[in-house]
Design a protein around this nucleic acid. Structure first.
Lengths: 300, 300
DNA sequence: TACTTTCACAACTCATGGTTGTTTCTGCTG
DNA sequence: CAGCAGAAACAACCATGAGTTGTGAAAGTA
């Protein structure tokens, strides 16, 4: 192509940033391979032979096909697929804020239909998604997965008006030891099962994780009516409830327990939006106070 | 492609006749180059990832484009272009016989508009034609040109009814020393100029090569009327003349002068029909008697 | 627990594509 | 006609990389 366009080997060599001799060898090799002379050499350059003229458009076709193929999978040319678990909780909001920082970005926020972090990691590994926000022990992170702790979500106590702590500005986790915490519908393999397990052990809480989840409304209903029942939610979680419930969020302090989301991604993933997302989370990052608590297993 | 089709590296390796490890390295290199994972490796094989599925049709496109490009210039997929000088003389007839031996062959018989052998050789070198029948000194054959002496055309004397030799069964070249041979319209750079030059020197002939050529009919006219004038023609030449001319062909013997056509072709030309043509000429080859004369310069 | 399958890694070999230096060919010019 | 300049090919050398064999790790299977 370069020789045909420029009319001589040296010019083609300059264009290709190689030596004239290398061009000569390439052409000779190609002609040998094809069994046909592609160029007519004269003392003032070269021009395509009849066979060369036939070959030229095909060669061009190969080059453009190659370019198109590379374009098609070039990182950034497809949307970044991020799993946000659930559109009501902190990861989804973080991703949405990221999206609003540059609304023309090529981003898909999806919700993987699994509560299991290992399965999410597998999906990342297989390329179904580029990233997922999950909490999982450092020891269980499979090879080939990069995990960055970029989103610590402080927990808050959600109580009804009759609860003794309903007017507190904040409460300490240890103060909850006498109260029942009810978080329904936690399946044993769900990623937050381990978190609440560790949390209750650390502060002597009695978290009632059993029993089916009958929906947010049933939970709100129970909380609003009970003077002893409380539940834990992420500080940014958008559980909408009707005004008549009058539930209150009480921040936890000293220390502040945080749910440590790791951004799981494939180690080799070069998608520029992935880097951008990491940067975004890093800068807008931990608004949590210094005195935080997280399970020791997240950082190994 | 092979991995995607077979579902595993080893099977792809078998298909490609290389080792499984080589396939692994190729895929790894491609993925590194593209910055994207194309395959999902499992313990029971591999399947295309999302990026891989996007890439696959492009890859297929590249392969078919490459195949098409090679096909387009594959020797044999285009007609063999043979220069026969002039449709009335021996080379054209030889090529026509060759063509009839397999009428579906892909062959173009063309007549290059030059009487100069060196120019014909240049056209061969440049790929304008694949082959040309020409007589030229071995020393003048350019590098890169293969020359095969495959068509010796015996000469015959063409005379009118009044010529002393008009009833001879054959004549010896030396016997022509006293007679005028008239071959009009030979330009000095024509390839047959050298031939007739050498011929007349060898046998002491006086060949009148000068004067413009006023067409075959004028020549026939002159021959038919003259008792002393004769000309030389190839034994197979198809000079048609009206019946009323009554010209006779007298074979030359002892020795038989032949016009030694060389089949000029590009040394690297792989066209299968070219080989076939050479074989054909070689077998149907020299029907000329043993006692032939040709210029010494043809074989150097 | 052992075994099989599948892919990746390591070390090595060797063909290939690149380099520089030089030669050949051809057309041009004094 | 010798000399010159431009273009491509040839030669020798070398680094890269694509292939090889041997081996190991991971995951499913008996």
């Amino acid at each position: 192509m370069a020789v045909a366009e420029t009319g001589q080997f040296q010019a083609a060599a300059d264009e290709l940033r190689i030596s004239q001799q290398a061009v000569s060898k390439r052409i000779a090799s190609l002609e040998r391979h094809l069994g046909a002379a592609l160029l007519v050499r004269t003392s003032r350059g070269s021009r395509p032979s009849l066979d060369g003229q036939v070959f030229l458009p095909h060669a061009k076709g190969i080059l453009t096909a190659t370019d198109r193929a590379e374009q098609a999978v070039r990182p950034g040319n497809r949307p970044l697929r991020v799993d946000v678990l659930n559109r009501r909780i902190a990861p989804a909001q973080a991703v949405y804020r990221f999206y609003r920082s540059q609304p023309d970005m090529n981003l898909d926020a999806v919700t993987l239909s699994t509560e299991n972090a290992a399965q999410a990691a597998k999906a990342v590994l297989e390329g179904t998604i580029d990233a997922s926000f999950r909490a999982m022990p450092a020891a269980e992170i499979p090879a080939g997965i990069a995990a960055d702790r970029l989103l610590d979500v402080p927990l808050e106590l959600l109580v009804g008006p009759g609860h003794p702590m309903s007017d507190a500005a904040s409460v300490r986790p240890a103060d909850l030891a006498d109260h029942r915490i009810w978080i329904p519908g936690i399946r044993p393999d769900a990623e937050w099962a381990a978190f609440y397990e560790t949390l209750s052990e650390a502060f002597g809480l009695s978290i009632d994780a059993l029993g089916p989840h009958f929906g947010d409304e049933a939970l709100m209903d129970a909380l609003a009516d009970s003077a002893s029942l409380a539940t834990l939610v992420g500080s940014g979680d958008r559980y909408l409830w009707p005004e008549n419930y009058d539930l209150r969020r009480i921040p936890l302090r000293e220390p502040t327990p945080v749910y440590p989301h790791l951004l799981l991604s494939r180690s080799g993933d070069q998608h520029p939006l992935l880097t951008a997302l990491r940067d975004h989370l890093h800068t807008t990052g931990p608004q949590a106070p210094d005195d935080v608590w997280a399970p020791d297993w997240v950082d190994h």
